[in-house]
Design a protein around this nucleic acid. Sequence first.
DNA 1: CCGTGATACCTCGGAGCCGATATATATTGC
DNA 2: GCAATATATATCGGCTCCGAGGTATCACGG
Lengths: 174, 174
Amino acid sequence: MLELAILGFLHERPLHGYDLRGRVAALTGHVRPIADGTLYPAIKRMEAKGWLERKTQPGSAAAPRHMLHLRPAGEQELLRRLREPEELDVSDENRWFVLLAFLRHLRDPEAQAGVLRRRLAFLELPSSFFYEDGRPVRAENVDDPFRQGLLTIARATSEAELHWLRTTLTDLGG
Amino acid sequence: MLELAILGFLHERPLHGYDLRGRVAALTGHVRPIADGTLYPAIKRMEAKGWLERKTQPGSAAAPRHMLHLRPAGEQELLRRLREPEELDVSDENRWFVLLAFLRHLRDPEAQAGVLRRRLAFLELPSSFFYEDGRPVRAENVDDPFRQGLLTIARATSEAELHWLRTTLTDLGG
DNA sequence: CCGTGATACCTCGGAGCCGATATATATTGC
DNA sequence: GCAATATATATCGGCTCCGAGGTATCACGG
């Protein structure tokens, strides 16, 4: 998730780590900002894979800045991840949101529509039930008010997204 | 997250690992079911902490079942986690959903209301903006349609939950 | 002059989870 | 009779992430 965000931001312009830190936090919005112990190792990892290049700029600020540039292999990786995402999965909304935030980098509208269609397929999948007091209970028949709330919220989310997906797909000519 | 679910389920009745596996998957609904390599180590961990006790039942099924019983320390841990949750954080919806699914185990309505109030406080926090082409842009002024979609979905979710929280708090007499 | 906070980077240990792999029996369908 | 599927448990390596800690410099207010 973090790697996708880094690739996306660096596709727009070279940045240094501390700047990335703020942008990633802003991107994920309310989400807890990523820790330094997450960010800097990620940068190192991605450098080692040849996706990033570091160009040190002395002076300017308090500490020396290591400007990070996206290398061609990094751009390829970004486009690959946007095209063939493993982040469509409903299990982690944040992953999908980060993907969505950078989907425009996939210039081709048809490719973009393809991603949305695959997300749609995931969302249109079943179906929920609970185990209440040991027996499976259909969502409609759930007794507990807190679980009813859970379902209400989940449904509202899913409906909002389905609606958006369908209208956007129409706009894209999909 | 998994630990909370296990504690919650075992608070209802003793279960064996394979059963838990199915229930956790059903609980989180559409979410990718947890891997065996996640579940069984978690059980071991929780046993070691004294929260769980294993009672082997030979015979019945194909393989011998290890029935898991919640020990008093486990119940205390469950109630503690429900009362003083670290899962209110908006960053991981699943954590919050799992908490909600077991909030009824905290019998006291005032304690339940307290949890909802704290969640409310998190949701009512700011405020989102993006970095678009290098500059911070307020959510209202975001240009990219995919990011607009992201905001639409996030807002719908948050509004649905806020509405539910407020009406439920009224019901609870909070 | 000193403390605080922002800027800027880094490392280490540990937690939690995943995928792959292994093992073995019972049931169901062909 | 045999293959697939369900039941049931477990381990291993690897990955991402977090929290805590460490190192500097610079700007600003008291």
